[in-house]
Design a protein around this nucleic acid. Structure first.
Lengths: 120, 120
DNA sequence: ATTATAGTTGAATATATCTTCACTTGTCAA
DNA sequence: TTGACAAGTGAAGATATATTCAACTATAAT
């Protein structure tokens, strides 16, 4: 096989391996959404927000105190989480209360914690 | 309660909620490691590499062809994955074969895929 | 030995993203 | 109606990170 049949800057070592795996690979969109999901929880601040909201519903000010960060910073991150559909909110007077809106997030945390407790 | 007992730029709305959640929160190190884990798989390229390696062991050149990217780019990302202990490699002649070295990664993928299939 | 190739690596550029700051909005209380 | 405060937001600055490019190493084949 010549290198030009594939799109990399090298020769193909194992053609059948490449083709076999290519067939099994999900499409680009799936990977983008998967990576976006993990990127979403791949930030210390958002991790802590989600963990806190898994304990109980909280308003922005409470979260700011729990995380020891400014309301503005928390609010920006909550907007990200809201847009991604992993948290939802309800307004009550001047306050806005947030809670988790996704069971999978908790599962991901559990598996993630297993991982880091298992490793050094 | 005065605002100065807490560290945020606002008053505390629900003191007991804050204290209760604070008690349940893991320490900083745990969140850093958790976020780092998710950040690790929160990248399209690394997602695809890990997915491919979950199908079978592959060398760098094969991976480059599967992902349609340069060897250099793949190699950089493999170094990241190696340092984090989620892949391991063995050398054979001129080639270096990589494989998954972490069961949790596959579990995380499964839960992640459930999530994105469940949502729109 | 020389050449070709698989793989790694450092530096640089480009891009994404997190926090801060200043301002705005909406709601409650006086 | 005015003041206070919770929350949201756009812009800016700072930081992190992904890919490219150009060496460089190591191995195999001639």
């Amino acid at each position: 096989m010549s290198r030009n049949e594939f799109f990399c800057d090298c020769n193909v070592i194992h053609q059948e391996a490449v083709l076999e795996v290519l067939q099994k690979m999900p499409d680009e969109n799936t990977f983008n959404r998967l990576a976006d999901l993990f990127k979403l929880i791949g930030d210390t601040t958002r991790c802590r927000i989600l963990f806190a909201l898994d304990q109980r519903e909280m308003c922005v000010c409470d979260l700011a105190n729990v995380l020891n960060m400014t309301k503005s910073s928390i609010s920006h991150q909550l907007a990200v989480l809201r847009r991604s559909g992993v948290v939802k909110c309800r307004k009550s007077g001047k306050e806005v209360y947030y809670e988790l809106d996704d069971d999978h997030i908790v599962k991901l945390f559990e598996v993630g914690l297993e991982h880091i407790n298992h490793k050094g």
